[in-house]
């Protein structure tokens, strides 16, 4: 029993980390309809900016986080304004944008490498100690906090998308960009907003993930691969769905390696991805289209 609970916890911890990455990625995808793979590198950038403010300059941790949040949001906006938007305005296909996003990812990773070096870094902000025991299973306060943030984001975004004006506009654009534009919605504003909000979430993800598993320049690639998988499983057009999909992925992966050799962990993740793409391509929370 304790072991089942421990696996569930392990799955939730992994899932919440994937979810933190997936949510921003999915937001940007649903409004802009292209894969912003550099999102993983933006997460890493957030983690490193926090390291810079907190460990190198010596600003208070929470104040550093606010600075990081604003800087990364600004960088996200600039990426949209000076890289993606000019290309989109020329009518570039989403394949071009995909390649550009991979290029951006490489540029950001190498930039981090250049400034901070290749060594693994740590904030050394929290002490490593035995986790809290809940019915025989162990979990640390930081992990509970990370899970809570993911769940809170899920609820917040669910209601934000359903009830708020901006949420409705974002859904309108993601549902049918042409129709939204004809109805007088400023698509450029929505795209900028999605990059700013998405990048802000990336910085939150970056700092929490770095607290949990240290910093390295290439951390973004692994994160975006799993975040992307979680987003597809949950329904990439649905932001709450991408969070649910990430939790699902985390739990299945960890439950899976309890029975299978642990070397198959990534294989489990990608088999699930294939199954979803074949049988339920719109994901768990897939948005239905009228004409399909």
């Amino acid at each position: 029993m304790a072991i089942l609970l421990q696996i569930l916890f392990n799955g939730l911890i992994a899932g919440s980390i994937y979810a933190l990455v997936a949510v921003g990625f999915s937001l940007i995808y649903s409004t802009g309809r292209f894969m912003h793979f550099a999102h993983g590198a933006v997460v890493a950038l957030g983690a490193y900016l926090q390291y810079w403010f907190f460990n190198l300059i010596g600003i208070n941790f929470y104040l550093s986080f606010i600075l990081t949040l604003f800087s990364v949001s600004l960088i996200g906006y600039l990426m949209h304004r000076f890289v993606y938007k000019p290309l989109k305005d020329r009518g570039s296909s989403s394949a071009v944008l995909l390649i550009v996003s991979v290029g951006l990812m490489i540029v950001i990773e190498n930039f981090i490498l250049l400034i901070f070096g290749a060594n693994v870094k740590s904030y050394s902000f929290l002490e490593i100690r035995k986790g809290i025991e809940i019915a025989g299973a162990l979990i640390t306060p930081l992990q509970i906090f990370i899970i809570a943030i993911s769940v809170a984001l899920f609820l917040l975004l669910y209601f934000f998308m359903k009830k708020s004006k901006l949420g409705r506009i974002i859904r309108a654009v993601s549902d049918n960009p042409e129709l939204a534009r004809i109805s007088g919605i400023n698509a450029h504003f929505v795209h900028s907003a999605s990059f700013i909000i998405g990048s802000a979430m990336a910085s939150l993800a970056g700092v929490l993930i770095a607290l949990e598993q240290n910093l390295e320049p290439t951390m973004g690639l692994n994160l975006i691969v799993k975040g992307f998988t979680g987003a597809v499983i949950g329904g990439i057009m649905s932001i709450p769905g991408s969070i649910a999909g990430s939790f699902f992925l985390g739990i299945v992966e960890n439950a899976g390696i309890w029975y299978l050799p642990s070397g198959y962990k990534d294989a489990i993740a990608f088999v699930i991805l294939f199954l979803f793409l074949i049988f339920k391509p719109k994901g768990i929370f897939g948005v239905k289209k009228r004409d399909e």
């Binding site: 421990q6 696996i7 392990n10």
Partner: peptide
């Protein structure tokens, strides 16, 4: 994430 490996 090595938690499940460790539990196992």
């Amino acid at each position: 994430n090595f938690r499940t490996i460790i539990s196992k």
